[in-house]
């Protein structure tokens, strides 16, 4: 055991002062280190493994971490069985979802999940309530769906960041 005798500890305490351990900072340091570990892991993986990881992430995004998305799409589905109406809504959703996902993953927008997640829940409830209240889907439904799509995209970005999607995975 090298350089660890008790006397060196005394010397270091005198010369450098005692350690100042604050829970909050230690947690932040730990989180940052965890993220670095994920990045290194990912960077060291062969591409096949990376591909597999992202497929897995995709599936996990839908079940169970993407329950919100399923509920939302189900909500759309329950509102109308007319193909054109459904197509419009699904397209609006996909488009919006892609935009915010890209923005968030690239680091342009960052909204804490404590705000995003409750809003997502609210949006699902809203769609459900709307389904019950109105007989026919109204005209501005695709716009509402678009806005909610933006929201769910942000939510998905949070899930992805848990897998440590590094910025350099987007070729500029």
């Amino acid at each position: 055991m090298y350089a660890h005798s008790e006397d060196e500890l005394i010397i270091s305490e005198i010369e450098q002062g005692q350690l100042d351990m604050q829970d909050q900072q230690m947690t932040a340091e730990y989180e940052a280190a965890l993220k670095r570990l994920r990045m290194r892991k990912l960077a060291a993986m062969p591409w096949q493994e990376k591909f597999f990881i992202f497929i897995k992430a995709g599936i996990q995004h839908i079940i169970p971490k993407g329950l919100d998305h399923i509920l939302f799409v189900l909500g759309l589905f329950f509102s109308s069985l007319i193909f054109m109406s459904l197509l419009k809504q699904v397209t609006a959703f996909t488009l919006a979802h892609t935009i915010t996902l890209a923005l968030a993953a690239l680091g342009f927008v960052e909204i804490p999940s404590s705000i995003v997640e409750p809003l997502i829940a609210l949006s699902i409830v809203w769609i459900a309530v709307e389904n019950c209240m109105f007989k026919k889907t109204n005209k501005w439904r695709p716009i509402v769906v678009f806005v909610f799509g933006l929201l769910l995209g942000l939510g998905f970005a949070c899930v992805l960041s848990e897998y440590g999607l590094p910025n350099d995975y987007f070729s500029p």
Binding site: M1, Y2, H4, L9, S12, Q16, L19, M21, M26, E29
Partner: peptide, 11 residues
Amino acid sequence: RSNKRGGAWMS
């Protein structure tokens, strides 16, 4: 980090 002693060493 805040719970690490200063300096550098091997062990």
